[in-house]
């Protein structure tokens, strides 16, 4: 394990230092919002203490990033593979267009989390948020899985407005007793049944182990399953000139 103290280092110098290290286990101490940490890395394991800046793990292609603190905006932007674990909360646009790997957030995430999430063959991304997500969760979702656990929401919907706007693929699981108000018409919602709980149980396994959450207690609650209403909600009626 190699240690770097980020302090007030510029992000370019910090990221260059991280990339040039031969050790694949690196701890970054005193992170102060430096951007792009772990960008496009594929074979390293980063442990960040402090606050990771915008676009943490953007284009990540493997390896792991663990933050003991909060992430900021665009965590895991366009990530292709690997794992990001946040022992805290994240800002807006978490997992923008992620296509693979997983992002585990212990607490909450901002607006537009999981926007443009995709999937392709073995690439099946997973975003799990422990408490609540802001508005526009899973906007334009085209694939993959988003789970929001609402751990401190007492059964209230753990999402903001316009959840799943433009959704045309993938699945969202929301742990709550009532549906979010004004779900867009592209989204269909149903109660989770036993088979869904089995899927959830697998998906939550690692997450609950990492954060020491009681998986059975979580699974005992009510979940909604949100999916796209039709295969092609954007099939507007066009007429050709």
């Amino acid at each position: 394990m190699t240690h770097i103290t980020a302090g007030f280092m510029e992000y370019e110098a910090l990221n260059k230092a991280v990339r040039s290290m031969e050790d694949d286990q690196i701890t970054i101490e005193q992170a102060n919002g430096q951007r792009y940490i772990g960008s496009a890395l594929m074979d390293k394991h980063l442990f960040i203490k402090g606050t990771a800046g915008n676009a943490l793990g953007c284009f990540l292609d493997g390896g792991t990033i663990t933050v003991y603190g909060n992430g900021q905006d665009a965590t895991g932007d366009t990530m292709n593979d690997g794992k990001i674990v946040i022992h805290g909360s994240c800002g807006d646009g978490t997992g923008y267009a992620m296509r693979g790997g997983c992002i585990y957030i212990r607490d909450s995430s901002g607006y537009r989390s999981g926007i443009h999430m995709k999937a392709y063959q073995e690439k099946q991304p997973l975003l799990i948020i422990g408490d609540r997500a802001g508005s526009f969760l899973g906007e334009y979702q085209a694939g993959g899985t988003i789970i929001v656990l609402g751990r401190n929401q007492d059964g209230r919907p753990p999402v903001g407005y316009f959840c799943g706007t433009g959704m045309h693929g993938g699945t969202m699981y929301l742990r709550c007793d009532t549906l979010p108000v004004s779900l867009p018409k592209q989204v269909s919602a149903r109660d989770a049944v036993d088979s869904d709980k089995q899927v959830l149980s697998c998906l939550l396994d690692e997450y609950c182990t990492i954060f020491s959450f009681d998986k059975q207690m979580l699974l005992a609650s009510h979940f909604f399953v949100l999916q796209a209403n039709s295969a092609a909600p954007y099939r507007m009626l066009y007429t050709h000139v």
């Binding site: 665009a74 296509r99 537009r112 334009y140």
Partner: peptide, 16 residues
């Protein structure tokens, strides 16, 4: 890198 016959939607704005 999207499923067969899935719509490919690039909205006007980059939401970030």
């Amino acid at each position: 890198m999207i499923p067969l016959h899935a719509d490919a939607i690039s909205p006007a704005p980059h939401h970030d």
